[in-house]
């Protein structure tokens, strides 16, 4: 190609691609700080943002892995709700919290495995179909086992996962109110583990390879179906962890938990720079994508902007993010 005739904009694309999301976050932080100088950068507000995004970030991380394989999981919101209901029922039945804590992730894993088996063994033409089906099924089952009503009354130990506070009295002195939410620590640890999994292990590399060219992966002797089942199972597992965090935050399981949160998860993944066509994206990008959605909601709430504007803005950012991906593909590859 004639490099000399490339415009400045085209030459900037690789940098926008790599650092654009950090720039976007920095600009958002600056604008929000200027608009709300007293409130925005307060400890209380920042921790609030992280608490709000904590359970959603788990769904986004799961959906991200699925999207890397060029798949999709529409059922994560329903998996979260079913896991939450199962947890609540186990808790109500009087099981000790040490056991109840495992219920949500285990139920999530089973749901995810059902998705994976359906996509591979039933040879569904696209994961969209299978997970659209289970989107209805899992929420239906959740309502069937709970009777469609909220269930509350969780043990304190259970709640501390989602709402625990690590006070910073050692840093700010006796009686300080500053704290780090335990849910933030949990999601950072989980994001780190999955970063290692995707970037430092063979299976992680294979997940990207499947998203790039499943035939190449198959020809390389990789059992593509087994990896796909694993990915959907892990996505379900993360949705179950999301349910565990949400249980702590709300203190109850309710029928509308996670409703439409699969769309938020997909939006965060796309904003975070992952390609919807698979094979591309980073764990850090997902975190950034979730954080941007959290910032947007928080900032607009602080300024009393209508929730309808939030929808318009999030939608616009998704389209912008994908347009950057389109440009990158157009100029970054040889055909």
């Amino acid at each position: 190609m004639e490099n000399k005739e490339d415009t400045l904009f085209i030459r900037l694309i690789p940098y926008i691609d790599r650092y654009g999301i950090l720039l976007l976050i920095a600009i958002m932080l600056l604008i929000l700080h200027l608009l709300q100088p007293d409130v925005f950068f307060s400890w209380r507000n920042i921790t609030n943002i992280f608490k709000q995004i904590s359970w959603q970030s788990m769904l986004a991380l799961g959906v991200f892995m699925v999207i890397v394989t060029a798949g999709i999981d529409l059922s994560v919101g329903s998996i979260l709700m079913l896991s939450l209901m199962a947890l609540a029922i186990a808790s109500r039945a009087g099981l000790p919290w040490q056991i109840v804590i495992f219920v949500a992730p285990a139920v999530g894993m089973v749901c995810g495995m059902i998705n994976g088996l359906g996509i591979t063994i039933l040879r569904m033409p696209h994961p969209f179909i299978m997970t659209l089906g289970t989107l209805y099924i899992f929420r239906g089952v959740g309502n069937l086992i709970s009777g469609g009503v909220p269930i509350g009354g969780f043990a304190d130990q259970l709640r501390s996962i989602g709402s625990g506070k690590i006070r910073l009295e050692w840093l700010y002195g006796e009686g300080a109110t500053q704290y780090i939410p335990s849910s933030l620590i949990i999601i950072i640890i989980i994001f780190f583990i999955f970063w290692i999994f995707l970037n430092q292990t063979k299976i992680g590399k294979w997940i990207y390879a499947i998203g790039g060219n499943p035939e190449a992966a198959r020809a390389a002797g990789i059992n593509v179906n087994r990896i796909l089942i694993l990915v959907y199972t892990l996505c379900g597992f993360l949705s179950g962890i999301g349910a565990l965090i949400l249980a702590g935050r709300t203190g109850s399981a309710y029928p509308n938990a996670g409703l439409q949160s699969e769309l938020d998860a997909i939006a965060a993944v796309i904003i975070g720079g992952a390609s919807f066509f698979g094979g591309r994206g980073t764990v850090l990008g997902v975190f950034a994508g979730v954080f941007i959605m959290g910032l947007l909601r928080n900032g607009l709430n602080l300024m009393n902007v209508s929730v309808f504007w939030q929808q318009v803005l999030i939608g616009s950012i998704i389209i912008l993010a994908v347009y950057i991906d389109v440009l990158r593909r157009q100029f970054g590859t040889r055909k």
């Binding site: 590399k205 990207y208 390879a209 998203g211 790039g212 060219n213 035939e215 190449a216 992966a217 020809a219 390389a220 698979g278 094979g279 591309r280 590859t333």
Partner: peptide, 9 residues
Amino acid sequence: QDLALAENL
């Protein structure tokens, strides 16, 4: 023939 390469890698 179609090379079977993962072009994203």
